[in-house]
C-alpha cells in the first residue's frame, strides 16, 4: 500500500492499484482518441461555436450572440428564482411549524406533491397552468406586455430582452414554485434545530409568538442552514436547465439551437457542460468555505 505513514508523505510511490488505474485510464483515452480520429473522423471547430457567444459586426462592435444571451437568461432566472423561492419557502416553512393543524397540512400536501413528482412533470403542469390559464385570467399577460413595451432602463436591466420577458417570467415563476418546496424543508430543519429554551426564554421576557419567531428563532435558524441553502442554490442553478424543455430560452435551450444549426454537437455540449460546472463548482466551494468557517467559529 502506498499510503504513507503520518509525517512521511513527501514522496509518492505508486502502488499496484495506482498502476492498474493509470493503465486503464491510458487505454480509455487511447480508445477515445482512436474512435474520434479514425472511426468518426471528427474535425474539431471551436471557432464557429465560440462566435455564438459573441461576434464582431460590420462596424467592428462586439455583439452578444445566442449562447451568451442564454447564459444571461440562466443567471437571471437563477437569481430571481432564488429570491422568490426563499420567500415562498419561508412562508411554507412557517406554515409547517405552525401550532394549528391546517397550515401544517396544507404546506405538507404541497411539499410532498412537489417532492414526489418528477421536476419535468411538475414543470409541464405549472407551465401550462401559469402561461395558458392563470396569466390571461388574472390579466398578468397585459402587465407583462406593458413591461415589455416600456423602454425604461430599469426594466431592461432587470429583465433583459423585451421580446422574451414573458418567457423569462414564466420560467422564474415555475422554478420558484418548484424549488420553494425544497427550500422550505431546509428552513424547517433550521427552525426545528433552534433549541426550545431559546423560544421559552424569549416568551419569558415578554415577546409575543411572532416576535419570538422573527427576532429570536429565525435569525439563528437561518445562520444554521446557510450552507444547506447554498447547496440548494446549486441545485436551483442546475434545475434551470430543465426549463429548456418547456422552451424557456436559457443556456441549455440556446445550446440545443446552436448544436442543431451548426452541427458542432461535440463542441457545444462540452462547452456548455463546462460553463455549468464552473458556476456550480464555484458555489460549492463557497458552501464548503461557509461550513468550514462555521465549524471554526464554534
Amino acid at each position: 500500500m502506498s499510503a504513507g505513514r503520518p509525517g512521511q508523505r513527501a514522496r509518492w510511490r505508486p502502488g499496484a492499484v495506482d498502476w492498474l488505474l493509470l493503465v486503464g485510464l491510458a487505454v480509455f483515452a487511447g480508445y477515445v482518441y482512436y474512435q474520434l480520429r479514425h472511426v468518426l473522423v471528427y474535425r474539431w471547430d471551436w471557432q464557429s461555436v465560440l462566435q455564438f457567444f459573441a461576434y464582431r459586426d460590420e462596424a467592428g462592435e462586439w455583439q452578444q450572440n445566442l449562447l451568451l444571451a442564454g447564459l444571461e437568461a440562466t443567471l437571471r432566472i437563477a437569481i430571481f428564482s432564488a429570491i422568490l423561492s426563499l420567500v415562498l419557502g419561508l412562508v411554507l416553512a412557517l406554515m409547517r411549524v405552525s401550532s394549528r393543524l391546517w397550515p401544517r397540512m396544507v404546506a405538507r400536501t404541497y411539499v410532498e406533491l412537489v417532492r414526489n413528482t418528477p421536476p419535468l412533470v411538475f414543470l409541464f403542469i405549472f407551465y401550462f397552468f401559469i402561461s395558458a390559464q392563470l396569466f390571461p385570467v388574472l390579466g398578468i399577460d397585459r402587465v407583462i406586455a406593458a413591461l415589455a413595451e416600456s423602454d425604461s432602463a430599469l426594466v431592461l436591466w432587470l429583465l433583459g430582452d423585451p421580446r422574451l420577458v414573458e418567457n423569462l417570467v414564466v420560467g422564474i415563476l415555475c422554478l420558484s414554485c418548484f424549488e420553494a418546496a425544497y427550500v422550505s424543508e431546509v428552513l424547517r430543519a433550521g427552525i426545528e434545530s433552534v433549541g426550545k429554551d431559546q423560544r421559552e426564554g424569549a416568551l419569558a421576557v415578554g415577546l409575543t409568538g411572532t416576535q419570538t419567531m422573527w427576532h429570536v428563532v429565525l435569525p439563528q435558524a437561518v445562520r444554521i442552514v446557510i450552507p444547506a441553502l447554498v447547496g440548494q442554490l446549486i441545485t436551483l442553478v442546475k434545475d434551470t436547465s430543465i426549463m429548456s424543455i418547456i422552451s424557456i430560452q436559457e443556456l441549455a435551450f440556446s445550446a440545443q439551437e446552436v448544436a442543431v444549426s451548426t452541427d458542432r454537437v461535440f463542441e457545444v455540449w462540452i462547452l456548455v457542460a463546462l460553463i455549468y460546472f464552473v458556476i456550480c463548482y464555484a458555489l460549492s466551494a463557497l458552501s464548503r468555505r461557509l461550513e468550514l468557517r462555521r465549524a471554526v467559529g464554534r
Binding site: 505508486p14 492499484v17 485510464l25 424543455i245 455540449w269 457542460a273 456550480c280 463548482y281 460549492s284
Partner: peptide
Amino acid sequence: GSRVGRILARGYIEVVRNIPILVLLFL
C-alpha cells in the same frame, strides 16, 4: 490507499454533481 484512485473518485463525484443531469444526458 491509492492516490490515483482517490483523485479519480473525487474528480468523478465533483464533475457529476456540478453538471445538470439534462446537460449530462445531452453530453
